Simulated scan of single mutants.
Amino acid sequence: MKKRRYYLLAFFISICLSGIFLACDTDPEALNIERPYTYSEEYYESLRAYKESDHQVFYGWYAAPGQLEGVTAGYRQSPSMGEHIAGVPDSLDFLSLWFGIPSLREDDSLSSYNPIAYEEMRFAQEVKGTKMLVVEITRMEGYSWLELSEEGIRDYGDYLMGMVFDNDLDGLDLDYEPEGDWIAGENFATLVEYIGNRLGPMSENPDKYLIIDYYNQTPPPSVEPYINYLVNQAYTQGRTSTSAQYLQSRYNQVSDWLPTEKFIVTENLGEWYETGGAPFTEADGNTMNEDGEQIYSLEGMARWNPRQGEKGGFGGFYFGRDYINYPPYQNVRQSIQAANPAVR
Rank of each mutant, 00 (worst) to 15 (best):
175 D>L: 04
175 D>F: 04
175 D>I: 03
176 Y>W: 09
176 Y>F: 15
176 Y>H: 11
177 E>G: 06
178 P>K: 07
178 P>F: 08
178 P>G: 10
178 P>R: 06
178 P>C: 11
179 E>F: 14
179 E>T: 13
180 G>C: 11
180 G>V: 11
180 G>Y: 11
181 D>H: 06
181 D>T: 06
182 W>C: 04
183 I>E: 01
183 I>D: 00
183 I>N: 02
184 A>T: 11
185 G>W: 10
185 G>Y: 08
186 E>F: 07
186 E>D: 15
186 E>R: 15
187 N>G: 07
187 N>R: 15
188 F>W: 08
188 F>Y: 14
189 A>H: 08
189 A>T: 14
190 T>D: 12
192 V>H: 02
192 V>A: 08
193 E>M: 05
194 Y>P: 03
194 Y>F: 13
194 Y>D: 07
195 I>A: 08
196 G>S: 13
196 G>M: 07
197 N>R: 15
197 N>D: 15
198 R>V: 06
199 L>H: 07
200 G>N: 12
201 P>I: 05
201 P>A: 10
202 M>Q: 15
203 S>V: 06
204 E>R: 10
205 N>S: 10
206 P>S: 09
206 P>C: 10
207 D>N: 11
208 K>C: 03
208 K>Y: 03
209 Y>Q: 01
209 Y>T: 00
211 I>L: 11
211 I>E: 02
212 I>Y: 04
212 I>M: 08
212 I>D: 04
213 D>M: 03
213 D>C: 14
214 Y>T: 09
215 Y>T: 09
215 Y>R: 05
217 Q>T: 15
217 Q>P: 05
217 Q>G: 08
220 P>Q: 14
220 P>I: 14
222 S>W: 07
222 S>P: 12
222 S>N: 15
223 V>H: 04
223 V>F: 11
224 E>D: 15
224 E>Y: 08
224 E>R: 10
226 Y>A: 08
227 I>W: 02
227 I>R: 00
227 I>L: 08
229 Y>S: 07
229 Y>F: 14
230 L>E: 04
230 L>K: 03
230 L>A: 11
231 V>Q: 02
231 V>G: 06
231 V>L: 11
231 V>M: 09
232 N>M: 13
233 Q>S: 12
234 A>S: 15
235 Y>N: 00
236 T>K: 02
237 Q>M: 13
238 G>V: 05
239 R>I: 05
239 R>G: 00
240 T>H: 08
241 S>Y: 07
242 T>L: 03
242 T>W: 00
243 S>R: 00
244 A>D: 07
244 A>F: 00
244 A>L: 02
245 Q>M: 10
246 Y>L: 09
247 L>N: 08
248 Q>D: 09
250 R>F: 02
251 Y>I: 03
252 N>S: 13
252 N>Q: 13
253 Q>A: 15
253 Q>T: 14
254 V>N: 01
254 V>E: 00
255 S>P: 01
256 D>I: 02
256 D>A: 12
